[in-house]
Amino acid sequence: MSVIEVNQISKSFGSMKAVDDVSFSVERGEIFGLLGPNGAGKTTSIRIMLDIYKPDSGTVSLLGGAVNEDTKKRIGYLPEERGLYQDIPLETCLLYLASLKGISRPEARERLQQYLERFDLAQYRKKKVKELSKGMQQKAQLIATLIHQPDLIFIDEPFTALDPVNTQMVKDIFRQERERGVTIVMCTHQMHQVEALCDRIALINRGQLVLYGKLADIRRQYATQAVMVRSLLPLPAALPGVASQEVQNGETRLHLVEGVTADQLLHTLVAHNISLERFAVAAPSLEEIFIQVVNEEAN
């Protein structure tokens, strides 16, 4: 059974349709990317899933049923609109949020100690939240999302305000959580992070689901007839089976003539005694796919 089942949900605010007949499912233990341009309906979809908004139509099943008080205890949520109580010590704030998730105070204290050390915040536990930097507050918010060891996590732009070291640490944590069987739904505009972390994605544009499936399948689906080649010497201007060449960041993109495969081109290059450092099928980046799909929709 899927951890999340979203079935034909729609939601309007006045005359604006924020979410239009969207359906998808998320399986246990996967990191699922919910993508889309600004105002596409991602946050509204998450809020519907979390029962903050009621959908105008459609249904949502989370962890095997409708969201109730028990389900809420098994969910971690890092919302787009970040926030912690500013005028109280960090430790007090995080222990309170943990207590609302139903964990006992001693257990919360023990876990908090571990997380504070891991996130390098232990020395700031008695500081008021407003005295912490933006990055520290972001890490504190992540602790609030993870401390009760949820089965399902929703994270909206988790890497904002984090430096590269902390970004890597958070990515590691997400991977560990996934190995533990935790399901993660991640919203972000950082496509390289989606490529690095996500198993499957859903792309929402103007409230509608426009792409959905395994990341590898989608990239294959959008792959062009091209290979990327890096050679020790410049390539000949004309190569059999190659329609055109394009130099990109020290590599050459070879656009193949229709009917010619990458295997055949490799044989051709070897036959021409061209020394290769790299030869790869040119799959489009997720960012390229994102821009292409959104532009197609706009046109």
């Binding site: 979390l50 609109e81 926030g83 998730k101």
Partner: peptide, 14 residues
């Protein structure tokens, strides 16, 4: 809660 944006966290807990 509205100013410090903790509303969404609270409302997904209670």
């Amino acid at each position: 809660e509205k100013t410090n944006r903790t509303v969404e966290i609270l409302i997904t807990s209670v």
